[in-house]
Nucleic acid binder design. Structure first.
Length: 492
RNA sequence: GGGGCCGUAGCUCAGGGGCAGAGCAGGGGCCUUUUAAGCCUCGUGUCGUGGGUUCAAAUCCCACCGGCCUCACCA
């Protein structure tokens, strides 16, 4: 008989004794934390506690145990002479992991531990599977990352002190983000996840099928084009905390579904958005970790405004010695990069080579720009939804925000010229025709909305998962997502 | 997708051609203030899966499944 069968048999034995191993309700009247905090005031009172059985120390005719609820753990003391032979014998039917309810009065043991002296106890829920084993200090141990991610409930049980604060921080981040944006007059909205066309980013989508309409729909890769339709509709400040889906590989900073906050502000440009973003992140940091100063992977950074501001060209020229504006075509740029020790990928165009130069100074723990920093003025051909910088033909009014080697978000002055936008989409269509299946689709309905008229608008999209990584010092995105996407588990 | 490392009991891990192991958890027994309780005692099992080599495979080889790291790609 394996352990699960032993536990099933104990549940049956309880039923045979007329005790439901899964009763519908509990008579708990105090939490563990309340009990410990008000220990002296509760002296002499009969109280009822409940929680999961995590230690059991039978000592003949008396038994010590610990139960744990969401607020803490407390010792209970059960004496045969006081609960009766029949009830005491029922202790044999208990296992670690079971939920118990215990009624009694408080006392302090010889060794000074605050303890419930039990007069009666009962089962609240029988656990059929064992908890992860206890290790040093009597705490549970569970290290296997595969089990931790597939069965997060075990991870939370075994590694509560390390894990729970991360997800509490994530909740605080979302709350603080809403507080700040709401206080600035932004309206939170929800736009379609199922979209007839996908847009707003360059990525491959997940495709699904609507049976009644007999048509394919896409899970959104970004909410951008819908949010800008709302700007057209007169909602001048709008945001969405959007779950996005991208059908790409996953690694320490990418999960196929992830959360992005996008916000748009009419009559603002990308420089206004920089000020908004640095204030937003500083507010979130203060609300979440109590300070704008944080440590990420051993590096201390300060999110307090103002953040650094560098053009992409300046930043790259300063840190790599390559001034890409001096090299107007792919070949000369590639040659300049080789001269500085880079190995430019021969398959990449000029824009993507510039992207590689950017990554070399931004990414990773050795990044030269740890700071929070805005890099701005991006190559236009990488930014089909961004307005061109006045007086230039190849530069977009766009910035990206970085901190500690993480890309936090992306913003531009939104392109609101419908004729220009159509031309950009058509250029993307040509890239699609050449086989780039991530190039953006032509969205006629969106063009029509722009033709109705969109005021000058600045917009930002920032990853919530990466922000959580930054504020909780986690280097893997799977540690800030409760149930990260995993490969299917096969039984063979 | 490429490369490297890994997969042994519920958990944490040893063992790396010759009987399947330890600690904790679990079963049986003793113990009325213990606390990682203690003492005695018993068994943990598709050694990821499937092939192959061998007298003999957890161990060596191949494929597959899953994980971790890394590179590429993407955000």
């Amino acid at each position: 008989m394996d352990e699960r069968e032993e536990r099933l048999a104990k549940a049956e034995a309880l039923r045979a004794a007329g005790i439901d191993p899964y009763p519908a309700r509990s008579a708990r009247d105090h939490t563990v934390a309340e009990t410990l905090a008000q220990f002296d005031a509760l002296a002499g009172q009969t109280i009822t506690l409940a929680g999961r059985l995590i230690f059991l120390r039978p000592m003949g005719k008396a038994t010590f145990a610990h139960i744990e609820d969401g607020s803490g753990r407390i010792q209970i003391y059960i004496k045969r002479d006081e609960v009766g032979d029949e009830a005491y014998a029922r202790l044999k039917l208990l296992d670690l992991g079971d939920f118990l309810e215990a009624t009694g009065t408080l006392f302090t043991t010889r060794t000074g531990e605050k303890t419930l002296h039990v007069s009666s106890f009962t089962m609240l829920a029988k656990a059929l599977r064992p908890l992860p084993a206890k290790g040093a200090g009597g705490d549970f141990k569970l290290f296997d990352p595969e089990v931790r991610h597939r069965k997060r409930y075990l991870d939370l049980l075994a590694n509560r002190d390390e894990r729970l604060p991360v997800f509490v921080a994530r909740a605080k981040i979302l709350t603080a983000m809403r507080e700040f944006l709401n206080s600035q007059g932004f309206l939170e909205v929800e736009t379609p996840v199922l979209q007839p066309l996908y847009g707003g980013a360059t990525a491959r989508p997940f495709i699904t099928h609507h049976n009644a309409l007999d048509r394919d729909l896409y899970l959104r890769i970004a909410p951008e084009l819908y949010l800008k339709r709302l700007i057209v509709g007169g909602i001048e400040r709008v945001y969405e905390i959007a779950r996005n889906f991208r059908n790409e590989g996953f690694d320490h900073s990418h999960n196929p579904e992830f959360t992005m906050m996008e916000c748009y502000q009419a009559y603002a440009d990308f420089e206004d958005i920089m000020r908004l973003v640095e204030e937003l992140y500083a507010y979130i940091a203060r609300q979440t970790i109590g300070s704008t100063v944080l440590t990420f992977q051993g590096r201390q950074i300060d999110l307090a405004p103002p953040w650094g501001r560098l053009t992409l060209r300046e930043a790259i020229a300063e840190h790599t010695g390559v001034d890409y504006e001096q090299y107007p075509d792919r070949e000369t740029l590639a040659a300049a990069m080789e001269a500085k020790g880079f190995q430019p990928d021969p398959r990449l165009g000029r824009g993507r080579l510039i992207d590689d130069l950017k990554d070399s100074i931004i990414k990773g723990p050795q990044s030269k720009l740890a700071g929070p920093v805005f890099l701005y003025d991006y190559p236009r051909d990488l930014s089909p939804l961004a307005k061109a910088k006045p007086g230039t033909s190849d530069t977009a009014e766009r910035f990206q925000a970085f901190a500690a080697g993480l890309e936090l978000g992306n913003a531009f002055s939104e392109l609101n010229d419908p004729v220009e936008q159509r031309a950009r989409f058509e250029d993307q269509a040509r890239q699609r025709a050449r086989g780039d299946d991530e190039a953006q689709q032509l969205d006629e309905d969106y063009i029509e909305a722009l033709e109705v008229g969109m005021p000058p608008t600045g917009g930002y999209g920032g990853g919530v998962d990466r922000l959580t990584m930054l504020l909780t010092d986690q280097e893997n995105v799977r540690e800030v997502i409760l149930f990260p996407t995993m490969r299917e588990q096969r039984d063979d």
